[in-house]
Amino acid sequence: MSSEDQQIREIRVHPIENGTVIDHINAGQALNVLKILKIPSSSSRVVSVLINAPSVHGRKDVVKIEGRELNVEEVDKIALIAPNATINIIRDFEVSEKDIVHIHSQIEGVVRCINPNCISNSNEPVTSKFAVSSNGRRTILRCSYCERIISDDIGEHLL
């Protein structure tokens, strides 16, 4: 391995002492994962992002956040845009917990309906609600109010 390769390899997989590694994110969705985690505004910790990294299934994104463990709500949101993601909790440089994400059959208050004329987009005292289903690799959200479907660009409509 050349010194340049070694340097690139270190940049890519540089271990973190404590924090979270979100692996197997669908290629191109890493920035939406950051949006879900409200990074950078929520934290001044070091965050590393790999986009289009080679993987056995083609390409993937990876996000590493130092000094932070995700809560359930954040993981549920990530599942919508990266249904194959794994969440690795790192403690003392070791993978302490490893979990796959789970897609719930109903979500509330996570995504805004794309239909501007949907009652959930008015000043009514309700949160958006969607029924979640899956069609192969695609996640499909159906608004519980107007039945409009969101599928390919869920990350664009996160609340």
């Binding site: 239909n115 009652i119 959930s120 309700v126 608004c143 519980s144 109010y145 039945e147 409009r148």
Partner: peptide
Amino acid sequence: RHNKEGAAQLASE
């Protein structure tokens, strides 16, 4: 009868 989609569902809640 309402002009917004989903109004009846909301009303039922």
